[in-house]
Amino acid sequence: MQKFITNNLARLGPLLGLILIMVVLGFASDNFFTLDNILNLLRQISINALIAFGMTFVILTGGIDLSVGSMLAFGSALTAGVLASGMDPILGVLIGLLAGLAMGAFNGVVITKGKVAPFIATLATMTIFRGATLVYTDGRPITGLSESFVFEMIGQGYVFGVPFPAILMVAVFFILFLILNKTVFGRKVYAIGGNEEASILSGIKADRAKIWVYALTGMLSVLAGIILTSRLNSAQPTAGSMYELDAIAAVVLGGTSLAGGRGRITGTLIGALIIGVLDNGLNLMNVSSFYQQIVKGGVILLAVLLDRRSK
């Protein structure tokens, strides 16, 4: 019974933290708990959350993906390029997503078949994909995208007053939640992260599963990039740099172990919310962006320290 309570307290930790931060910010700023601000917040976090969802899968298998920001940039640029050339926007989005899938799968193949440590492999591809983006864009932003309603909808649209990116994020969250908790694939992800050797000897094709996990992350990163591109109505070759850090932070804040095998995607959603709420609330309070970084880092450190304490 005691174990049951401590277990669930550990699970609730991130949520309690989020509520605490929200209450504090609610007192500090009158504008925080307005409907507009909350909806705005959900839109703001959608980009980081989508990347962090993929990162959750990767970290659960015991890996890491540093190349998410670069994949985001390349996928965005490719999509923007297709759109600028006047092709169908849906086709452009699909091409971008496929490119993300391919880049992620490449990461996966290097890591599994090439037996390169995920940190090193994705550190290298981070540079490669960024370089490829700069080559493709010639180092300049791609502008003059089509005036397509569909494409503008992705990043700027509203459905019944709710920002479309927020809806997209919630939908993707539910799909990934089901995959992770209700499918054979999800079970394999946890098993591989918990003990890869035992999983392989149990007949699980670990390499195949891991390649899919990295491919999924590539695709989700590009999806985040497409939202960004649609919002800005242009693709920046430097887009997404350092995004891997916020994504990893969200996963860790959500209680997922960097050693793999343990964690939940719900935690990641809460982690992304914590980061988003901090950014948003500190902005409302007119805290300088210099101090914001210190506060953000401090909260991450505090969360991890508390987590250690409870173990």
Partner: peptide
């Protein structure tokens, strides 16, 4: 190291070969 995923439950370990 080769037979069990130690922090998973009995249920999850038995299911591993029988997915």
């Amino acid at each position: 190291n080769e037979g069990l995923v130690l922090h998973l439950s009995i249920r999850e370990n038995i299911a591993l070969t029988n997915l």
